[in-house]
Each structure stands twice: as structure tokens, then as C-alpha cells.
Amino acid sequence: MFEVLVYVYENYWQGAACPESDRLGRKLMAAGFDADEIQQALIWLEGLSVAARGTQLSAPDISSEPTAPSRSGGLQAQSSNSLRVYSVAEQTHLGPQSLGFVSFLDNAGMLAPHMREVVLDRAMAAPGDPVALDDLKIIVLMVFWSFGKEPDALLLDELCEDTEGRLAH
């Protein structure tokens, strides 16, 4: 599934240019991907679209107080004192490496809270137990893609760089 997601990211860099699910499925089939992988990826991408739209529709009203509910009845602004507590299911499915990476992105301010929640949602929907760190990085890329945002250059380097041969100093 992740090979298909990388292909979609590389070929439809601007999410708005990505064709509808049926047409995308045909294009992926023509590119030589396995039908089962295509189906998994399309279902995952539909979930990503729903999650991204959900956070955009219920984004907090920044003119209101942080503790007041938004007009749409959705999310509230996250306080700077907020702490994200991961459920046992999230800890088990994501594993320490992936959770550590999400925490790093969150603490560094590279991942907005609403985008973090979409990353976690899509990671929970991804195969693998635990989710591999390289797969999580693809998920993060796809979340930025779905919001139409380009990751910071340093983050993009971290997400795309092969760390296999990296030496620690």
C-alpha cells in the first residue's frame, strides 16, 4: 500500500490535481500496481480525505476564546498547556519509534495539532503492528499533501532521507 501512496504523492504532488478514486484506480492499475494494494490505498486515501475535511470544517474560530466551543460545534483551540495522551491501542499499534517521531514533530512545532490528529488517525488505519517509522513518514507526507501544504525543507529532508547509512556523532 505504501508504494502506491508514494506513487500518488510523486505524481500528483498537488493534491487538487489527483483524479477521483475510480480514475486514480485505473491509472494505478496501468502503472502496474497490484489490485489489492490499489484497493487498500484507495480506501486509506478516502479516509484521509474525510479526516482532512473534518478538521477543516470544524477548525476552531480563532476570534473566540480558546475555551469556548467553535461556532461549528467542532474542535476547540489547543491550549499551550495541553498534553496529548496516547491510548494503549495507539501505543501498541504505533510502537515507540513512531510515537517518538510524532512527539518530536509535535514538540518542534512542525506538525499542527489538528494535523497530528489526522496523522494518528491514518496511522491507526495503516497495516503493521507496530507501524514502521518509514511508513509513518509517508503518512506524514500524505497528511501535508491532503492539506495542500508543503512541509518545511528540514522536515521534508527528514521525511525523505534514507537514514540507513547515517552515522551518529
Score class of each variant (00 low, 15 high):
99 L>Q: 13
138 I>T: 11
40 Q>D: 03
113 P>S: 13
95 G>N: 09
27 K>Q: 05
2 F>T: 04
153 A>M: 07
110 M>T: 11
154 L>S: 05
82 S>I: 09
30 A>N: 04
6 V>P: 02
77 A>H: 14
19 P>M: 13
50 V>E: 09
63 S>T: 09
27 K>R: 05
47 G>L: 13
83 L>V: 15
36 D>N: 07
169 H>F: 00
101 F>C: 02
136 L>Q: 06
116 R>S: 09
77 A>E: 15
98 S>D: 07
126 A>W: 06
31 A>M: 00
54 G>I: 01
56 Q>T: 11
54 G>S: 08
153 A>Q: 10
152 D>T: 04
60 P>K: 09
146 S>G: 09
157 D>I: 11
105 L>Q: 10
18 C>I: 04
88 V>F: 15
28 L>A: 01
72 S>N: 04
33 F>H: 01
67 T>Y: 14
148 G>V: 05
6 V>D: 07
146 S>A: 08
152 D>E: 11
129 D>Q: 13
68 A>S: 08
6 V>N: 10
77 A>R: 15
22 D>Y: 06
39 Q>C: 08
24 L>T: 02
77 A>G: 14
148 G>E: 01
90 E>L: 14
27 K>H: 06
44 W>E: 06
55 T>V: 13
42 L>C: 09
54 G>T: 05
88 V>Y: 15
64 S>A: 10
124 M>L: 12
35 A>S: 11
104 F>K: 11
147 F>E: 01
8 V>Q: 02
32 G>L: 01
87 S>I: 08
3 E>W: 07
127 P>K: 06
35 A>Y: 03
3 E>C: 03
138 I>R: 03
114 H>S: 12
162 D>S: 05
25 G>T: 04
23 R>L: 07
151 P>C: 00
42 L>S: 07
143 V>W: 00
71 R>P: 10
3 E>I: 00
10 E>L: 04
85 V>W: 12
84 R>D: 15
33 F>Q: 00
123 A>T: 13
7 Y>G: 03
72 S>G: 09
